[in-house]
Amino acid sequence: MVSENDVLHIAKLADIGIAMSELGEFTEQFNAILGYFNILDNLTTDGDFDCPLVNVFREDKVGIPLSQKKALANSHNPENGYIRAPRVI
């Protein structure tokens, strides 16, 4: 069972705000969904994955990227060609 405090902890990890008025319902739904997932407890997880992995990296080639102006077009108050973010400390 996941408690309301667990949900608040996960919300903090994910930077997702939850209103206190939503917390009870979120926790209840969380537990119903996680309860359903318990069917996977019946699975044994011996053996390796057989998904073949292929290297998709290519040689570095200079291409034509988005211009700085276009890359910044959707950001708020860019400064001297940089994106501004909230303060860290």
Binding site: A11, K12, D15, I16, G17, N74, S75, H76, N77, I83, R84, A85, P86, R87, V88, I89
Partner: peptide, 18 residues
Amino acid sequence: VRYGPKPEMTNLWHDAYT
């Protein structure tokens, strides 16, 4: 930050993003 609604720039970043 790069698109979408503007965060409160004077808040600490976790608070602003949350």
